[in-house]
């Protein structure tokens, strides 16, 4: 049997090995108290550090930081960028393993992948079945790319919100406003996996879901224009959408920097939503 090195144990504790190797080392550690003792410093320090600093990612981001970035003149850039996998979920899984039953590397890998998949879903449109909206007893809610777009995408101009053709479903917010019942609402354009085009409005509930207030098929969108766009039947031609927005709307459309601030802070609850009134109305 090959010797397990400290670097093996370190990589295993940090979940940095390929899945088979992760599993193999985990199985060895599970069987061998000596290996477990050697792995302990790596596992424990990871858990403690994660625990000590986890909360600071949930603090409110100061406006000056958002402002510093927003106030810069944009530079034309092309192509997507990628994010590293978020550490916390993985570390929490490691913690669970450590305290309950030391070695379940397969579970760690699966959860790590799920977290990664979630992060990718947030950033890039991906194909899915019932992809935009889910109907429940409580009403309709945005799911998949629509949820991701409403939660973290910045508004784009209406004429850029719907790409001509997509292999996968796609969604883009076009504007953000405050509603009369003190929630944030966003109008969106979306294309489902069959490339049908929709327009609608959704409002964010306290639990982080986006409730669909209106969702309609865009008439004429099935006939792409010569330039591949969906033709002139855009926002001008949707009286029911306009009516819903008009009925909900309590504020002007938010400016891009205000919107950016809300996204950066994950749509902070307003005092009124939690029942602690500020009293300056």
């Amino acid at each position: 049997m090959s010797t397990v090195t400290d670097h093996d144990l370190l990589s295993w504790a940090d979940g940095q090995l390929p899945p088979e190797e992760q599993q193999r080392i985990g199985a060895l550690v599970a069987k061998d108290p000596e290996l477990r003792a050697r792995a302990e410093p790596y596992l424990k320090t990871r858990i403690i550090l994660e625990e000590a600093f986890a909360a600071s990612a949930h603090e409110r981001v100061p406006d000056r930081l958002v402002q510093l970035i927003v106030s810069q003149a944009p530079v034309a850039s092309e192509g997507p960028f990628t994010f590293a996998m978020h550490a916390s979920r993985l570390a929490h899984v490691v913690k669970g393993l450590f305290t309950i039953e030391l070695m379940r590397p397969a579970a760690l890998t699966a959860a790590g992948l799920a977290a990664l998949a979630g992060a990718i879903l947030l950033l890039r449109p991906a194909p899915s079945e019932a992809d935009l909206i889910q109907s429940t007893a409580e009403g309709q809610f945005a799911v998949g790319v629509l949820h991701a777009a409403l939660e973290s995408a910045h508004s784009v101009p209406v004429n850029a919100a719907l790409p001509a053709r997509t292999a996968a479903s796609v969604a883009n917010p076009v504007l953000t406003f405050e509603s009369k019942d003190r929630t944030y609402c966003r109008e969106y354009r979306a294309r489902d996996h069959e490339s049908l085009a929709f327009a609608g409005v959704a409002c964010r509930l306290v639990d982080g879901t986006w409730a669909i207030k209106h969702h309609e098929r865009i008439a004429g969108a099935a006939r792409p224009g010569p330039d591949g766009g969906y033709g002139p039947a855009g926002s001008d031609d949707m009286p029911s959408l306009d009516a819903v927005v008009g009925a909900l709307q309590a504020s002007d459309v938010l400016l891009p920097e205000d919107e950016a601030r809300l996204i950066a802070n994950r749509w902070p609850e307003k005092p009124d939503q939690t029942g602690t009134r500020t009293g300056n109305e």
Binding site: H58, I69, A264
Partner: peptide
């Protein structure tokens, strides 16, 4: 805002955690 600026805003919570650590 361009893609880099949007990306930086999205990274702010993580950067602040790192900076706080």
């Amino acid at each position: 805002m361009d893609e880099v600026q949007k990306g930086m805003i999205a990274l702010l919570p993580r950067l602040r955690r790192f900076a706080f650590a």
